[in-house]
Design a protein around this nucleic acid. Structure first.
Lengths: 341, 341
DNA sequence: TTGAAAGCGCTAACAT
DNA sequence: ATGTTAGCGCTTTCAA
C-alpha cells in the first residue's frame, strides 16, 4: 500500500485507484509525515534561527528580504522552512533540539547566543549568515567592514572630520547610550562590529582620533531609535558635520531628527545609512546597498545543494556604495572650497 | 537515559550529568527530534499555507503583519512555524502531505486552491484566515464586506456617484483588465469578493448602476499595479470623481498615477485604500484599518489553545474607517454645495 | 504483482 | 532509583 502513495509506477493505475479509494473510505488520512521522516531520514524542512526578538526581524526590511530569498530557495527545492522560536527571555534552547529539520540557517544572532551553540551541536548541515566565519560551517555574508570603509572614505573625501555614529545593538544586553571603544571591539553582532571597525579604520587613517568620536547605540531597531540616537549624538557635539548610521532604518530616523532641529540635509548635516532598503532609495539616502534577497537565496542554496562533504564554503556578496542626496561637503568645508582660490 | 534528557527531576543531578557527559563523549547528538515526534505524537510545529507566490506575501505589508502576529503566538507557545511551500506552477500538493505539523493556518489563498483542499484532508486542527467560513474549521477574519460598505457610504455622503475601482486578483488565473460583474461574484478570493460586494451594495442603494462602474483587476500586488490600474480606469472614464482601491498598496500606486496626470488629490480625485498599513498612514490615505498583527496572533491562539473539541469557532476582528486627506467632495459636488443656496 | 517483516530512534509504561 | 520492553507508522527489503 505504501507503493500506492509513493510509487505510482510500481503498480497498475487501476489497482492504485482502488487502494486509495478504499483507504479513504476507511478514513485513512494518508501516510503520517513524521513516521515517514523517521524512516527516510529526511525531515523535508530547513530550520531558520532568527534574531532573538521576532518582531524586530519582521519590522526590519533587510531581514524580510533575507527571509524572502530563503523562502524562495526552499520553495524551489520543495522544502519547508521552519521558523525556530528562540525566545531570549527563557533560554529555551529546547526549541532547537526539538526542530525536525535537515539543516539550519542562522541569521544575524549574537555570536554568543546559546541557540547558535545548540544549532552547532546538531548533526545537520548549517549555514550562518551575517555571522563570523566559524570555519566549520558554511557562511554567507558581505564585507561589512570594507563597505563601511568605502563609505567613510567618501565622507572623508567630502571633507568630513568631525562625525558621529548611531549603531544598532552590539550585544544581548540593552545599552541605549554612548559606546566605549572597548564595547565596539567586543561587540557580539558580527555585522555591527565590522561596520564600526571599517569606520574606525578609515577615520583613523584620516587623522581622526576615533576614541573621541561619539558613537551611540540603540537596542530597538526602528526610526524612533534612529531619531533619539541622532539627538543624543547632536546634543553631545552639535558641531559634527556628518551622522553615520549603521542601518537605513536608523538613518531615516536621524533625518527626521535633523529636520526637527532645523538642520538641512546635506547642507547643514550629512546623514548616511546602510542596507539600501526601498525607503532609503525613495529618500535619496547615501548608503551601501546590499543584496539582501540574494543573501537569503544563497544561504538556502548552500544548504540544499547536493552537498559533497568538502570544506566549509564562504560566500561574500557584492555591495554597492550609493551616493544619494543626503551627503555633501560639510558647511565650513563647502564654503572654503566655493570661495577659495 | 531518555530520562536524563527529558525528566531532569526523575534522577539525581549527579547521575544526570554523568549520563549526559558520557553520551556526548560517545558522540551522541541528543535525542532525534523526528523519532521523538513520532513517539509523542507532537510535531512541535504549526504549518502555514501562504499565498501561492511567496514573493507576493513578503512584499505585502499586511501579510507580513499577519506573519509577525502568528510567529509571536507560536513563540509564546514554544512552537515552530513551518512555511509550507505551495508552488502554484506544479500543483505540488505533496508538500502539504509531507509537512510534519500539529495543525495548519491557511492565509488568504483562493478558495479553490488544491493546497487548501489537501490541508483540509489532513487530520489536524486548522484555522483559516481571510477565507470563507467553512463551518468545519476555525476561522479568523474581518467583516470585509461591512467595512467596505461603510467606506462607500462615506464617499456617497461626500457626493460621489461616478467612481472606479482597482482590485487585487480575483482568481488563480491572470486577468489584468476590466472585470465583469460575473467575475466579481465568482471571485475565488474571499476578501476581494466581499470588498467588492460591499461596494456594490452601497452604491446600488445610492442609485448607482454597479454594472456600469469600471472595475479593474491586477494580478500583481504592488504600487505599479495600482498605478497602471488607476490609469486604465481613468482612461475608460476620465469623469470619475473617486478611485476606490481594495488595498493600500494599490491606492498608493493610484496616487502616483493621479499625480502624473496632474490630478490633485482629493480636489480633483478622491483615492481610497484598505488595510491601514504604515505607508498609507504616512500618506494620509483614507482607508480601512484592520488589525493585521492581531489577526495572526488570533489565528495562532485559536490553533494552539487547549482545544476542547467544540464546534468550530469564528472570530471577526474590528476594523476602523480612517478618513484621511485623500477623500473629499467631488469637484462638481463641492462647488454646488459651496455656491449653493 | 502482492505480502510479510524488520527496524528507523524514541518515550512511556512497567519491572526490578 | 534504575533497567527493560513494546510500539509509534512508515519504508524497504526480501519472499512468495
Amino acid at each position: 500500500m505504501s507503493n500506492a502513495y509513493n510509487r505510482p509506477d510500481q503498480l497498475s493505475p487501476e489497482l492504485r485507484r482502488r487502494v486509495l479509494d478504499t483507504a479513504r473510505r476507511l478514513g485513512y488520512p494518508g501516510p503520517d509525515p513524521v513516521a515517514r521522516s523517521l524512516r527516510t531520514r529526511k525531515a523535508g524542512a530547513v530550520g531558520l534561527l532568527l534574531t532573538e526578538n521576532l518582531s524586530y526581524a519582521f519590522r526590519d526590511p533587510a531581514a524580510i528580504g533575507f527571509l524572502e530569498g530563503l523562502a524562495l530557495a526552499c520553495e524551489d527545492a520543495g522544502t519547508g522552512l521552519l521558523l525556530v522560536p528562540a525566545n531570549p527571555e527563557r533560554e529555551d534552547v529546547a526549541s532547537v533540539h526539538r526542530a525536525g529539520v535537515d539543516g539550519f540557517v542562522v541569521y544575524s544572532v549574537p555570536d554568543d547566543d546559546p541557540h547558535l551553540a545548540a544549532v552547532l551541536e546538531r548533526p545537520v548541515p548549517t549555514v550562518v549568515c551575517d555571522q563570523p566565519d566559524l570555519g566549520t560551517v558554511d557562511r554567507v555574508g558581505i564585507d561589512d567592514r570594507g563597505a563601511m570603509y568605502e563609505l567613510a572614505k567618501h565622507l572623508i573625501g567630502l571633507g568630513h572630520r568631525r562625525v558621529g555614529v548611531v549603531c544598532m545593538r552590539l550585544a544581548r544586553d540593552r545599552n541605549d547610550g554612548f559606546v566605549t571603544p572597548d564595547r565596539q571591539h567586543a561587540a557580539h553582532f558580527h555585522v555591527q562590529r565590522n561596520r564600526l571597525s571599517g569606520l574606525a579604520e578609515a577615520f583613523s587613517e584620516a587623522g581622526v582620533d576615533w576614541s573621541q568620536v561619539p558613537v551611540v547605540e540603540r537596542f530597538d531597531h526602528n526610526t524612533s531609535s534612529g531619531a533619539s540616537g541622532a539627538a543624543q549624538v547632536l546634543d553631545r557635539d552639535p558641531q559634527i558635520t556628518a551622522l553615520i548610521c549603521t542601518s537605513d532604518v536608523l538613518a531615516l530616523g536621524a533625518m527626521t531628527e535633523a529636520g526637527r532641529r532645523g538642520l538641512r540635509v546635506p547642507h547643514d548635516l550629512t546623514v548616511t545609512g546602510f542596507d539600501g532598503i526601498r525607503a532609503a532609495e525613495e529618500a535619496g539616502l547615501t548608503t551601501v546597498r546590499q543584496p539582501v534577497l540574494e543573501k537569503g537565496r544563497a544561504a538556502g542554496k548552500l544548504l540544499l545543494d547536493a552537498h559533497e562533504r568538502t570544506r566549509p564554503r564562504s560566500v561574500n556578496l557584492a555591495t554597492e556604495l550609493i551616493i544619494g542626496k543626503t551627503s555633501g561637503p560639510p558647511r565650513g568645508g563647502a564654503e572654503e572650497r566655493w570661495f577659495g582660490p
